[in-house]
Each structure stands twice: as structure tokens, then as C-alpha cells.
Design a protein around this nucleic acid. Structure first.
Lengths: 191, 191, 191, 191
DNA sequence: TATGAATGAGCGTTCATTCAT
DNA sequence: AATGAATGAACGCTCATTCAT
């Protein structure tokens, strides 16, 4: 966690962050058809600078997905021993939908492009996220907050659905709250 | 503005239908990145024949969406006076998700491209579909089968979510049934 | 040998020939680093027209080499039963050097690019050329016009050497005659 | 214009030599398409260090060619008063072909790029080499070892031819010996 | 002085669209 | 009416070269 020994890379680091941020936004807007040139233009860096940080378009996508996946995995972990498992689970679900806007699209694009989603850093992050999510799900079920006939497949499907629709339809916060409310009611145990 | 008589268009009509069918399949497989040339090849017609029927790629997309929207609108209409409003509503929801696989992607592509989704034949079809859906929703609510705090916005969001996720993740029938089950439980009136 | 049944392709055919011609010249001048754009520009056709005829740069190279190889093979064949084997052999050698300007460079470029030089139409043409050359060589040796310790390897090396140097140094006819004269003296049987 | 003193350039000198060596090898392998970055990487120096020594890629090429030309000129000089002019000439020819592998390609690349081959240090080296070669040629002719109707143009053409073909076809030592044998027989006086 | 990050021109290739046949 | 050849803009990517550290 100490400062790295190379102060030279201050600008390079800033450029990387900037490119990632812009790329996230551009991809959310234009989908995977977004061009590297457009990303470079909006990040106000040269085209080759993007390529220095991310040697292919695919690598850029993968970096974005990996970053977001890690964030979600981290959130799962910090909720793992929450004293209220039900609330923790629903909070995680909401966080995942809110933060992973556009991610599923990228994951699919990567899969289409033949990237092994379970390999490398992305695979690691993915497993961490899934493991964390499963813990939250099981604890919520044990606490009686979530119906028992739910598995990871259903959870993944629901989260994906919400992510994709929120992304493409630009859900505002109000709509998201109401739709997730419906989801959560559906997830409650049947009385 | 009157429909012109069509004495010679027997083969042209057949070509149009054929191109539409093939385009639907190709787009479902390759997404909106599918090329006009590929569609022409698979339809076994010349490239310019496709362009005669659909002056731009966008127009072809629009035609597909319009057709599918009309089908869904028709389904809503035929369920409009079903004697069991609750069943009718859920059947319609399921039909919409099942049949419009790949459609949402197109709608978004159109919207991205600046097409006014409410204009022209597509707008007409869209309004018919929404009107039909609203009737089904209201009747189901009046019958006590669907919670009262649902509006068309929530309905659209839910249908979209299911369509997009089903499309991108290749839900099998079993998973779709289970996920829609959760949706429908969430839509039931709170007891 | 009859006219092909498609008169439509008159212009396409002319473009193909034109592109091939220009490409031969451009490649002779700029080497394999010549750009497709430059070829298109000089041929006064659109870039995509070049690609319609030759789907990759490699394919264009291969087409050129194949064409030239065929011409040389044809020349070998028509000299195969010449009544003066010595003259026939030397005439063939001269023809090969004169006509295949720049070819060796392309062959090597293809080999570098991983093209199997013995496969497909090029391989066929290549074998025909080598077979024809061998016949001429053996006959010349039997007639006492060429030293016996010559094999196809040496022949290939000598022809290549002359081709490459003629190409890169822009030998005029006079110099070519004198240098080939030295070659031919070297090829004569030792007295 | 005077040579500046070089008190501090011990490492710079070493870098220059190292870069030149590596560049020679890389260019022999990858041709003139080799990238400056690759050369820097293999020389284990920074990219800008290469550019400090050689302000352009062209300059690097020129330096390599100049160095090799100087070596050949030196060889010519040391053979200039050999007691056996015929042997000396053929030894020089062989040395030139053997050592200048890859050089002709560079010379041509330079010429294509518009570099005046007769200017600067390269021109000087070139003249020295040609002068030395001419002396060897004339002495060999006077000694009756080489035919009289040979001039520098023919000599240059023959050496180039052998260099280029040896380079591009990866002649092994055996083949080179045999082919040069044919060349030398051709160069002998006609009996 | 040495480094490597940044840059933009250029390359091979694809695609929607137009036009001559 | 139908065809497919022609076109140029755009894309992903690489490279020689410059500049800030």
C-alpha cells in the first residue's frame, strides 16, 4: 500500500484511470460497438495512449468488467457478516444492479469474442463475486428472508435482467426502487 | 397515400417475407452487427433486392420490430375479453417475453440511431400494443390478480428486463418459467 | 475458350486486369511494403474494388506470382522440344530473368507470411515451371551445352540471383545481356 | 566541424555498439520492417537511447551499411598488394558476398528513401570500397585471371546478385561455394 | 543523460450504400 | 425488377518520432 517506487508514472496512471472512466461511459452509451477512437477522443488522449494501457479493445472491456466485478465482490464481502442477513442480501442485490450498469453486456461481448471468463484476473474476481453472493443468499434463506427455491442461477438471471434493463432504458432512481421492490416481493418466501 | 395496386408483386412479396424471416434469424444470432450482405446471401437474393425492400439497414430493423410488435398487440387484443383477467395478463406477459426475444435489442438500436419509435407504422403498432397491455393490466388489477401499485412504466421495465436477460443469457424454458414465476409472485397483490 | 456466358463482368474483368498490372508495377517499385491504398489509387479504382478481386493483400501477391509463374512454365513447355537444346535452355533462362522481375521478392514474402507455396494454384504452377525447367536443363546437359555438375538447386539460385539484382538495380538491357553472358560462360562445360 | 572530445561517452559508446549489433541481427531476421522498439528491447536500452544515437530509422540503417561497407573496403585494401592477384580478387568477391548478407536490402531501402548513397560518411566508405575493388579487378585482369571485358558495373551487378539471392534464400555454405564457382568460371578469360 | 509515455499518420480490412447493367 | 460491382468512410491496430520527467 506504500507509494510505488516510480513517480514517473503519475501522468500515465492518471491517463489510465481517465480512459477507464470514459470507456465505461461510452460503452454504456454506445454499447460494444463503441470505437476506440471515440473513447480516445472523449478521454482527450491520443489513440495510441489508449492502446498503451489496453493492448486490444477486448483487453479494455475486460479491464472494465474486472474492476466492476471486484467492486461488487468487495461489497458482498463487507456484507457477509451483517447482523441482518435479509437486509444484507437485498442491499447487495440493489448495489449490484446500481453499480454494474452495462456490465452484463460487456461480459457477453467478451464471451462472444472467445474470452475465457473464468480465466485470469477476471475469473478470480468473478469467482469471488459469486462466492460472496452465494453466502449472502444462503444466509438470507436461513434467516427466512428469501424463499428456499432460489438458486444461484435464478439470482444471476434476476440481477442480469435488472442490470440490462436499467442500463438500456435509463431507469431513474424512482423506477429502479419500484421495480426492485417487485423483485424483492417475488423473492420473499411464499406465505 | 392510397395503397397502390400490386399486380406484379407476387415474387416481390415473397422476397420481402423471405428477407424479413432470414433477417430476424441472422440478427438474433449476430446482433445488430450483422451485415446486409450476409442477410442477402442467406436469403438467397441479390444485395440490391434487400435494399429495394428496405432502403436502409435501419428500415429493415424497423420492419422487424414493427412486425413483432404487431404480433404482440394482436395477442393482447385476443386476450382482452378473456373471462379470467388474471390468467390473461400473465399469459400475455409470458408471450411477450417469449416471442420478443431479440426485439428489445433492435428497439434500442433504433432508438440509439435516432428513430422516433412513436412515428409511422412502428408508432402505431407500439401504441396498439401498449393500449392492449394496459387493458389487460387494468382488468387484472380490477380482478384482484395484480397489485394496484403497478403502472405501465413498471410493466414495461419488467418485460424489458426479462426479454433482454433471456436474450443475452440464452435462458432455457425451465429457467424462464422459474424466473417469471418469481416475477409473477412479485406482481401479486400484497396480502 | 469460348466467351464466358456473363457479359456483365466486362468492367469487372477490366478492373481485375488493371489492378494486377498496377500492383505488379507498384510492388516492383516499393517492395512488399506497398500499400493496398496506393495500388488502388494508381489503378484509379476504389479501395474496396481491389479487395473485391483479391480478398487480402496476400491473395493479391499470390495472384501476381501465380500469373508470372504460369507464363514462365508456358515458355518452358514451348521450348521443351526445341531442336537446339542448348539454345533453348539459355533462352529460357533469359526469359525467366527478364519476365519474372520482382517475383522472388514476392515468393519470399509469401513464404514469410506462411503461405504454402506448394499448395493450390500457385503450387501447381510452380511444379509445372520446375518440371519444365528441369527438362530443359537435362536436355542441354545431354547435348553438351551445359556442365554436368549443375542441378536444379544451382539453377534456381542463379535465376533468383539474376532476378533479384535486375529488379533492385534496374539493370538495363545491355547490362543484363553482359551479366547473363558471364553466367552462361560459367554454365558451359569445363574444357 | 571538429570532432568534439568525448570524456564521458564510455557507456554511450558501448550503447551505440550494442544497438548497432542488435540492429544488424534484427534487420537480417525481420527485414526493413523491423521496428525501432523491437531493436531497443533486444538491445536492452530505452527507445530514446536508440534515437539519441541514430536520429531516425534511416540513420540507423545508414550506419549499419556504412560500417559493413568500411569492412569490405578494408578487406579490399589488405588484399591490394597480395602477390597472387587472381586469388586476391576471388577472395575479395567471396568475402563481399559472405559478409554483406542483408546489406543490399538496406542499401536499396536507403536509396528508395531518397538517401544519397554518395554523400557523407557512407559515400566516402562506398568510394573507398569501389576504389579498392577496382584495383583488385584490374590487377587480376592484368594477371590474366579475369576476362578483360569486365568492368565495375558488371562486378557490382554480380556481387549484388549473389548477395541478394544468398540473403533471401538462405544459401548454405555449400550452395554458396558451388554457385560462386560457377560465377568464377564465368569470370575467367575465354580460352 | 536515459527513459518510456504520448501522439497522429498510416495500414489492412469491412460495411452500408449507390449505380450501371 | 434484380443483380452485384464500385465506392469511401470507419474500424482495430502499429509504428516512427517527440517530449516531459
Amino acid at each position: 500500500m506504500s507509494d510505488s517506487p516510480r513517480p514517473l508514472r503519475a501522468d500515465a496512471r492518471r491517463n489510465r484511470v481517465r480512459v477507464l472512466e470514459v470507456a465505461k461511459a461510452v460503452l454504456a452509451r454506445d454499447g460494444t460497438a463503441a470505437s476506440m477512437r471515440e473513447i480516445a477522443r472523449q478521454a482527450e488522449v491520443g489513440l495510441a495512449t489508449v492502446y498503451r494501457q489496453f493492448p486490444t479493445k477486448e483487453a479494455l472491456f475486460e479491464a472494465i468488467v474486472t474492476e466492476q466485478t471486484r467492486e461488487i465482490a468487495g461489497q458482498a464481502q463487507s456484507l457477509a457478516d451483517d447482523e441482518n442477513p435479509g437486509e444484507a442480501f437485498f442491499a447487495f442485490f440493489t448495489y449490484a444492479v446500481t453499480s454494474s450498469t452495462g456490465q452484463k453486456m460487456l461480459v457477453d461481448a467478451l464471451a462472444d469474442a472467445g474470452v475465457d471468463i473464468n480465466a485470469g484476473e477476471l475469473g478470480q474476481a468473478n469467482r469471488a463475486m459469486l462466492d460472496g453472493a452465494e453466502i449472502l443468499l444462503v444466509r438470507a434463506q436461513q434467516a427466512g428472508a428469501v424463499r428456499k427455491d432460489m438458486g444461484m442461477r435464478e439470482l444471476g438471471a434476476l440481477v442480469s435482467a435488472a442490470c440490462l434493463a436499467a442500463e438500456r432504458q435509463h431507469w431513474d432512481e424512482d423506477l429502479r426502487t419500484r421495480v426492485l421492490g417487485i423483485f424483492f416481493d417475488g423473492l420473499s418466501p411464499r406465505t
